[in-house]
Deep mutational scan, measured.
Amino acid sequence: MGFKLLSKLLVYLTASIMAIASPLAFSVDSSGEYPTVSEIPVGEVRLYQIADGVWSHIATQSFDGAVYPSNGLIVRDGDELLLIDTAWGAKNTAALLAEIEKQIGLPVTRAVSTHFHDDRVGGVDVLRAAGVATYASPSTRRLAEVEGNEIPTHSLEGLSSSGDAVRFGPVELFYPGAAHSTDNLIVYVPSASVLYGGCAIYELSRTSAGNVADADLAEWPTSIERIQQHYPEAQFVIPGHGLPGGLDLLKHTTNVVKAHTNRSVVE
């Protein structure tokens, strides 16, 4: 069995187990497998329904001669939608809004960016022009300005110390501490036991640490421990890039980060 097929099978099995364990909360999309990078042309966006009122959005972007996937989250909030992270750029984010209108038909009224990198804030200006209120932590807003990236308009308070959590509509926002970046936030959907790890969490097929220019490698494993301790009931975990899975993604990420750190020390 090929690795790609095995990865998709694991996603399907995880979703099936969740649907059985929580039949009222989960209505997993039966329309197909989780979209992969090879299936999404740059400039297009796919939506994948995880649970009743919960979707991931998947886009792709060219970077350094390669094409990478990027995940975000959409959560229903009454007759409105909360968006977590842009679709990595203005063109993708405009396509995301169009796809949401086509498939869901509810307005996106608020959006949260989970850290300051372009795959999370690139497209904020498109959201703002569409009347979406954009939010991020003060740290993310400051770092985005320093980096020359787009800056969300509103500040999220109460997320300055490791372990801080605040309720934001249908989700809980959690600051686990520094990891992929010093400002990275985690998003949890309690009604569906869905954990969105953003770039602080890796997919299972990833074996290298990737972009760690703004990471705190020493603190990252401790931050992941905080996530595990705060959300032990999480059933569906979405990484910032690639295929979702279960809580095993947290341990896998820790292993990859520690291996990278150990290699760096040896070198």
Rank of each mutant, 00 (worst) to 15 (best):
N71Q: 06
L81Q: 00
D119Q: 01
Q228K: 11
V75R: 02
V11E: 05
A94M: 15
D119T: 00
H117A: 00
I17P: 04
M18T: 11
Y12G: 09
N262S: 11
P138A: 07
G197Y: 01
V11F: 09
G246C: 04
S264Q: 13
G131F: 02
V42Y: 07
D79Q: 11
P232N: 09
L13P: 07
P152M: 00
S181M: 02
I74R: 01
W55G: 01
I104K: 00
S16W: 15
D64H: 07
R167Q: 12
P41K: 12
A179Q: 02
V112P: 05
E33S: 08
P221F: 06
L156H: 04
V28K: 06
P244L: 09
G177Q: 03
L249N: 04
A130S: 11
L73P: 05
F116M: 06
D119F: 00
Y12W: 13
Q49M: 12
T134Q: 00
K258T: 13
F116L: 05
G169C: 05
I104G: 00
T254N: 13
T109K: 14
K258M: 11
Y34G: 15
E219R: 08
P170R: 07
V189R: 00
K251P: 15
I224P: 00
I224D: 00
E219I: 10
L156K: 05
Q229K: 11
A136W: 04
R128K: 12
G169W: 05
A95N: 11
V54P: 02
A98L: 14
D119H: 02
A95F: 15
H115P: 03
S31R: 09
T14I: 08
L24H: 15
L159K: 02
D125Q: 08
R141H: 07
H260F: 07
G163I: 06
Y188K: 00
I40F: 15
S30E: 15
L249Y: 04
T93Y: 00
P244M: 13
T253A: 03
E145W: 12
E225T: 13
F26V: 14
L204H: 11
T36K: 13
Y34D: 12
M18I: 14
H180A: 00
K258D: 13
G177R: 02
A19V: 15
Y12S: 09
S191G: 13
V112E: 05
T207N: 15
T60L: 14
I50R: 02
R206P: 06
E157R: 13
F26I: 13
Q61G: 04
I50H: 08
G65Q: 09
H230V: 12
A87W: 01
L73Q: 00
P176F: 00
Y231Q: 01
